[in-house]
Write a protein that binds this DNA or RNA. Sequence first.
DNA 1: TTTTGAATAT
DNA 2: AATATTCAAA
Length: 618
Amino acid sequence: MTVEDQRGEDGGSFDRFPVGMRVLAVDDNPTCLRILESLLRKCQYQVTTTNQAIKALKMLRKNRNRFDLVISDVNMPDMDGFKLLELVGLEMDLPVIMLSEYSDTKLVMKGITHGAVDYLLKPVRMEEVKNIWQHVIRRKKLDPCDQGKHSDQGKTCQESGEGGKGVTSIGLNQNATTNRKRKDQDEDEEDEGEYDEHESEDPSSTQKKPRVVWSPELHKKFCAAVHKLGPEKAVPKKILDMMNEEGLTRENVASHLQKYRLYLKRLPGANQQARLVAALRAKGCSYVCMDTLDGFGDMHTMNGSGRLASSALSSSYTHGGMLGRLNSPSGLTIGGISSNGLIQPGNPQSLSSSFSTLGKFQPSISVNQSASLFQGIPTLEHNKLQQTKSTAHIGEFNPLNSSSGFAVPASFPDMRVTPSSSSTVRSSSSNPLMGDQSSVRVTPLLPESFDGESRGSSDFLDHNHYNESWEVAVQSSNFSSITLLRECSSHGQIHSNNLGIPSTTAQISNSPHEFSSSNAFLEPLAGPRDGHGHGNFIGNAVQSADYTEKHRWDNHNLNQDFGTLNSIVDQLNGCTSSAFESNEIENSAMVAKTETNEDFIENIESLDDIMSAMMKRG
DNA sequence: TTTTGAATAT
DNA sequence: AATATTCAAA
């Protein structure tokens, strides 16, 4: 339609912009919007701005021929950027460029697959803005109808030609997955002499190095370094050296280390999760799992982690065409695994439960969905669940809605800090993680349980596995929490399991190693216990944890679920909190006893609450 | 002076 | 939330 473009006819040089190209810029952040507008204007585009997606939509609807291109932020309060993207795509054929400060591959993928012609990272740079016109041209080219309007000469659209080069960060042309590593632009790719003047003054054009994305790989490296160095020597500089990652700075490492430490710090207490689990357990939920995208293809992956507003998501998906069907809604399943009596009849916390409640949820889950729910779960566990047939799906949780559902880089499964809980649970480990060795180290029990991967607390890290220790630790913590809870609720007795596992010091350690150790000790629990010989939920959990270790369970959702549940737990009778407060946990041997199940059904009472809470949370 | 790590900013 | 940046103290 109307791009009065005057592209340089001089052979594709992009020194001349399509003057007057009408761009609608949308961003709820005034500053960003202003900057964006400034950039666009410098490019001589005709800019219209709005800080509300809804307004943008109205403007577009009012006269769909009023703009040539839309550039919108992804996260906006009134309407999700993806939603806008989707609507624009459906209602008008305008190229839409998404803008975001996040470069998660999943998000980018979502944007692109939903029709965005490009996905730019903030701060947007002049080079990027300078070339956005190409999308308009391209669009026109594709659409025979509009073509005539443009005077494109042959070269017009060479997207990837020189013009394309600047387009950015994560452009269509470029590999959307390239969001990691930042070592590029230190130099600066200032180029185009024509606009130099502007660039100097425009803040956004100021080159800023891309922020480091702690991808799982990077994190692994980081962990490896940390582990090798040991608590004492794991300081930024050394870690950096060890990592030997080009472009990474000491500051980057320091920052990550800071986060890492914080994370570690809270694990020990594990109270939150423990409590949560405890509560669930009390309710009869022996197992909680969340569906994850892991199992899915890339596309799915994006879905899962997507943090689009639910509405946006759902609709997006719907429209998404290809995506539409791929994304099976991720759901959280709370399965009562089994039964096995995780809940003892006499359990103080038992509730009158209503299995019926559970039942009603089931219908909502389609077979496929159910299946998908397990995709992210280790096969082993899945099988077990099936075997026991005690699996009960309780409701579905749509992570998309969850606040924590955002695509999380994986590195820290669950670093959320719950202030409230922290105050409450302090007992087990008062030590500030890493450095603090006060915690008792748990000797790994049955090292062999780890599938042959021996993980001495000290050196397992040296292997390829150590890398995931952090993550593993997290997961382990979840499970261990369960165990702990179990222990606590069960009267705090210390049992030794039949497997001959010596009673271990249950410990909540601070260091990854220790965690892994704890994990190890949990492993035994999987086996029959107390003569009952029934694999219990914990066992399953353990295995799954173990499995995770081996296969890298990047399903953070699980953790998130715990977190979510955790809060819910509070609502429930806070059963175990006290237990955690006692340091006994630290020294008591943990043994999970097998209990008969079946009862759990009776105790399921508040699952409703939980479920509803979870749903609401979403 | 360099490095750390907590605090604070984005 | 994830990173970055700042800044006082080592």
